[in-house]
Write a protein that binds this DNA or RNA. Structure first.
Length: 273
DNA sequence: CGCTTTGTTGAAAT
DNA sequence: TATTTCAACAAAGC
């Protein structure tokens, strides 16, 4: 499940390969056209034709190809993968879109679950405005987190998953950050103490940077490049660790349901109140 | 077959 | 009315 560190890993892998390439058009298979747009395929191609890729960057969980004028965003959702080499024959059926570059070079979007989407935006700011602060930017701070949590009344888990609140966190890193800070996922944001907020503000960037350094977490299906897995799975403290002993207090990690999401926590370290 | 996964959407609840 | 929560959705593997 690609979240901020996994998407960053893909972006860092793609950037040197794609910088300076010219985009020709995007094509989709006849039996599945949902992966591209908005805008419509016709408009999409009219917009991108001949534009040069000036930058490859990440915003929230999106891979963004910044072109001369607008930009193309790629959301991997659950199982999306970006390939820059011709896929194997048996992988061809999962290619839901192809971005055609010059000289027979293509970007292939392979997506078994087909939740992934590729969109075009006329301006970077249109896309930028959709998301909250980047946790690895200077817009994120203890002060911001404190003010933002105390000024609303939401459960911490869904709050941190809300991309408009903070960008890039998903199920894995929210569970890890809340365990590190000793905060129960059901805690109300306005009830957090300064000490808890301070711990959380430290934990979020620390965990994300640490994961990026190891190329992200390969839990089920995340790979970048052709078949390279991330190595952060070995550092996980609670995600997928139900039934094992808490690294801090030896209590058994449990998996519960919070806001319709599978949620991993230590009942001792993370108090409800 | 039902459950799981993600983020968006629109409806419902507070 | 604004804020917050929830169910539905899209798709396929196990």
């Amino acid at each position: 499940m690609p979240e901020l560190p996994e998407v960053q890993t893909v972006v860092d892998y793609l950037r040197p390969e794609l910088l300076g390439e010219t985009v020709h058009k995007v094509s989709v298979p006849a039996n599945y056209k949902r992966a591209v747009g908005p805008p419509s395929l016709r408009t999409f191609n009219k917009c991108i034709a001949g534009q040069v890729i000036q930058d490859v960057r990440r915003r929230a969980k999106l891979i963004v190809l910044v072109l001369d004028k607008g930009c193309i965003s790629i959301h991997l959702r659950m199982t999306g993968r970006v390939l820059i080499n011709e896929p194997e024959q048996n992988d061809l059926r999962y290619i839901t879109a192809t971005i055609e570059l010059g000289a027979g070079h293509n970007i292939y979007f392979k997506d078994v679950r087909k939740f992934g989407r590729i969109k075009y935006h006329n301006h970077w700011s249109d896309l930028d405005a959709l998301y909250g602060p980047e946790p690895l930017s200077d817009r994120f701070s203890y002060r911001w987190l404190k003010d933002s949590c105390l000024s609303r009344d939401r459960m911490m888990k869904p709050l941190l998953l809300d991309q408009q609140f903070i960008a890039g966190l998903g199920n894995i890193y929210v569970d890890e950050a809340l365990w590190t800070a000793g905060i129960h996922p059901c805690r109300t944001s306005s009830s957090l103490t300064s000490d808890e907020l301070r711990k959380l503000a430290r934990a979020i960037p620390r965990i994300l940077r640490s994961s990026i350094r190891l190329n992200g977490t390969t839990f089920q299906s995340f790979y970048f490049g052709e078949e390279t897995p991330g190595r952060f799975a070995s550092q996980l403290k609670v995600f997928g660790k139900q039934g094992t002993a808490c690294k801090r207090c030896k209590t058994e990690i449990v998996k519960v349901r919070v806001a319709q999401r599978g949620t991993h926590l230590c009942p001792t370290c993370q108090h409800v109140n």
